[in-house]
Each structure stands twice: as structure tokens, then as C-alpha cells.
Design a protein around this nucleic acid. Sequence first.
DNA 1: CCCTATATAGAATTTAAATTCCATTCTTCT
DNA 2: AGAAGAATGGAATTTAAATTCTATATAGGG
Lengths: 292, 292
Amino acid sequence: MVCGVAVTELARDFRSLREMLAQRHDGLPRRLQQVARYALDHPDEMALGTVAEVAKGAGVQPSTLVRFAQSLGYGGFSELQQVFRTRLRDRWPDYDERLLGLRDAAQAEGGAAILLNGFVEASITSLTRLRETVSAADLDKAADLLAGAETIYLLGQRRAFAVASYLGYALGKLGLRAVLLDNAGGMLPERANLARPGDALLVISFTPYTPGTVDTTAAIAQRGVPVVAITDSAFSPLVPLASAWLEVAEADSGAFRSLAASLAAVLTLAVLAAEKRGVCFRLPPSPGTAGR
Amino acid sequence: MVCGVAVTELARDFRSLREMLAQRHDGLPRRLQQVARYALDHPDEMALGTVAEVAKGAGVQPSTLVRFAQSLGYGGFSELQQVFRTRLRDRWPDYDERLLGLRDAAQAEGGAAILLNGFVEASITSLTRLRETVSAADLDKAADLLAGAETIYLLGQRRAFAVASYLGYALGKLGLRAVLLDNAGGMLPERANLARPGDALLVISFTPYTPGTVDTTAAIAQRGVPVVAITDSAFSPLVPLASAWLEVAEADSGAFRSLAASLAAVLTLAVLAAEKRGVCFRLPPSPGTAGR
DNA sequence: CCCTATATAGAATTTAAATTCCATTCTTCT
DNA sequence: AGAAGAATGGAATTTAAATTCTATATAGGG
């Protein structure tokens, strides 16, 4: 019946589908044009709805949707729907195109490039997700606590240690007193005892939460020191201990997790806290909206 | 059967669901906790996947998902899924609007969001640029040197220290012997003396190059130890000392540079080196294409 | 104006997914 | 340690959705 009609390669992503529809639209039967318009105007409905729902929305019969998909070269509506679902999954409006190109290029270059590309993609995923999960209010609250502290204690072990150490560097540059709690000589508990209620603890930990980190945080929190936690889930044992916390979930690329999102979050906190501190101690030149 | 059990009003939107799960999580059976975590970590899969797909992703049986939904008060998985689908619909009301207004949205949310957005964008810029400047050949060469080393010494100070420390963590996990050269007690020169020709040094430094890092690298290189450098320019003082080097330029967002690209590069090296080492020492089960 | 080819609507069928049920395995309490 | 209860995995069943089929309508050509 439909032998050799589909000259064009069938579209697997939303962009190509859009393009293809624009081209073939005029040659399509009336009802199918109607479906095409609806599909491009309501991509979310196309992705999430059942055939019956979409048909109702577009004002056509269910079978029309199937014929539409088939006339485009797909096996059926479900196959067409995958295009719309993929678009929902991978919606990084700015970066999706770039990423697709990167993946292809990496394949061509060989194993090392694929590996690198994996880490790059995991990092970008983490970063874009960060922008969605962390709100300005959360950041403000956490930064307020840090700005009000005399000394900021930093705690992070294993893979979170890198984050804590960079934060220590940044806070130092910004002129905020910070102490990096490492476990040198197994002295962590003793060094943690220095924290007093006028200070603050910033703790970073991800699954599986290092017991030492959790224990130390609990000990410090119990002594009335405000705790800001950076962790990866609402179920983290740090959350009940914290006065403020940020959810930072890092994607992994097989072997190791990225730290990109954690670093971005932590630097934001550092700069925010410094700004707030600046407002308290030395009044800034421009009042009102302090941030540029 | 389930008369009047659900005391709580059942959640119809994502936020309440999230909250409810956080509360009830501890009282839940093991598998149901597992599902709860997966659901919050992969909301898109929950929205788009079928029961079978989600079950596979979460590592449970399909029936467990249904029981999970029911224990929360929903009629079944489909009803629970609606919550996740609604979230997808509502969060991106309009595709085009979002394209235009990412930065505007940050403006509207306040200083904190602008700041965070800046760090996220800087990181993504660094990461995509990394893919352009670093070639697979460079990576291979550097990884070969590391794979051939008995012990890998890691050197990075100031902001590069975070990178070196994460690399140390990763190499340890991969079973490669690595020594992080910190300057504890001002003993850096003495500790660096331990490196011998059969070892390797991985050094990370960016403008302005920390003198201590450069000096130590020079001393080690002169004693015949192969050096792999991660630095930000061909004119870096590390380049003439190195047997292999990678150019990693980090974008900055005003105050601080991202470390995202450096971390991605360094992790790639670590995994590559471990793979090569595996090939040399214990022949892998699958010959030919050793990858994964 | 009629005949043929194509498109369409709606019912019938097929296919796939969600839910329930039951046997087995862990837990917990005595 | 043993029994009772809850939790789990997997097959069986039910339910819903997608696809196909056919009768009817519509448009285009002779």
C-alpha cells in the first residue's frame, strides 16, 4: 500500500519534525493539516495525552491521528508521540542542539572523546537541573545564615571535600573568615568543638552520606550552631539538622559524579553572603537594590 | 479494605507530594522507600514512563509501584503519575516564552537567582569550550603516562587544589595509587622528593601560576619524572616542563572561575588511565574493544 | 451529471499496559 | 527459636489504549 512513498528520513527529534511538517503541510489532506497545526501548537498535549484525548483536543477521530502518524512514515501514533516525549525529557532550550552535535562528533573521535563527552553532558545536566530545583528564597535564607556568622566552618568529606575546599578558598578571597574542617590527624571532632552559636556550619554531603560527616554535623547542631546543608535529597540525614538547606543533585556519567552543580551553588552562596555582610558592615555606595 | 486509612489529604501537585514523601519516608517499607527516592530523583521518568519502564529504572517490580501509589492514597500508579505529568505541563507553560525569558526569570526572582545563573552559564561555557580545545589524542597521551606510573603524584594549589583533591579521590576509587601533595606543614618540597622516574606527576595550575607549584614541578621534572599538566594556556610555565598537557580554560562569572571543565577533564583522565592500566596488568575478559 | 479514487468517521479488533492475586520470603515479637 | 504478620516478586487477570477495518461521505475527472 505505502511502498516507497516516504522519501524523507523520518524525524526523530522535534526540530526536524517541525521542519518536515512545514514542508509537507500544503500537500496534506484537510484533516491531517488540522492535526499538524494542533500538534505544533500543543506539543505538551501530544506528549502526555492518549490518542482519545488528543483527538478530542484536535477535533478529529482517533483513527485520524494514527493515519497522520503513518502518513509521516511512523508506525503509528505511539511512535510519533515519542518525538514529543523526548522533547519534554531533554528540554534544555538553549543547549540541546549543541549537545546533539557534540555527541556525534565524539563518536567520530573515539573512546577518549566519548568519555570526556559523558562527563561534559553529566555536568551540564546537573547545572541546568540546579537552576530548576534551587530557588532564590532558599539561597537567600542560606546566605543570611552565613553572613551572620562570625566564623564559617566548612565540612565535606570524600568527594564533597573538593567542594568544601574550593568554598574555603572563595570565602577567604572574599574576606570572610572560614575554617575548613579536614580530618587531619583524626582531629575532626576536636576541631569541630570550636564552633560556637555565633558561628555557622556549612556541610556538604551526598549519598551514601559519610557517617563522620553526619555525626559531626549532629554534634555541632546540638550545640546551637546554625547549619546550612548542601545535599542531594530531602531524605538526607542532614536535612533535619539544618536551619537551611539546598538540594543539589549531581548527575553521573557512569563512574563518577560531576561536582559542577555543587560548585556553582556553593560559589553563589559565598558571593551572596559576602554581599549581605557588606551591607551590614560597610554600607555600599548604591542603596536599595544592592546587586548590580 | 482501605477504609479511612489515608488520614492525610492526598497530594495533587508535585510540591505537596514531595513534602508528604519527606514526612512519611521513614515509616515506609524498604522497597517503597526505594521507590520514593527514585520518584523524586527522576520525576521525568515517572511522568513519561510506563509502569514496566519505571519499575526497571527503580529496580523494583511493577506491582511494587502500584502498591506504592496505593499506600499513598492514590487509586493506582496511573493516578500518581498524573501528579508528575501535571508538573511537566505546568512547569513549562510555553516553550517559546522560556526560550526568551531565562535571564528575565532570573531578574524577576532577585539577585540570588541572577548570581546562580551567572555561575551556571559560566560553567556550561567552560564545558562546551573544553570539548573544542581538548582532543582525544591529547587525552590518550596524558592517560598513557598516568597509566604507566607506579604512583601518581597530584599537585594543585589555591583554586586548583579542589581539582587535585577530587582527582585523588577518583584515582583511589579506581584502584590507582595516588598521592595528593598538599603543603601541610610547609613540607611540600620534601614530599615532592619522593617522586621517582617510574612515577608521574599530574599538576594543575592556572593564571596567575602559583610560584610554589611551578617550582615544585620543575624540580620533579628535572629528576626524570614524567609530568602531565592541566593548565590554561600554551604560554603557561608548566608547558615546557610537561611531557603531555591539556589546555583547559575556565570562564568566569565576575568573581570566581568555574572548575567544571577542569573537573571533567581530570575525571576523564582518571578513568582512561584506569582502563589502560587494566589492559596492561590484568587482561580483560573481552579482548579487542576494551571499552566498558 | 455520474463514476472513480481518496478521505473520513466510527465500530471492531488487537495489542499493550495497569492492576490484582497468591505463593514465598523476610521481620518482628513472644 | 518459632510463629504471626507484613512485605515482596512474579504470574494471572482485567482494563484501557492503540490500531485496523469497513461503510459512508466527499472531491475531482470524464
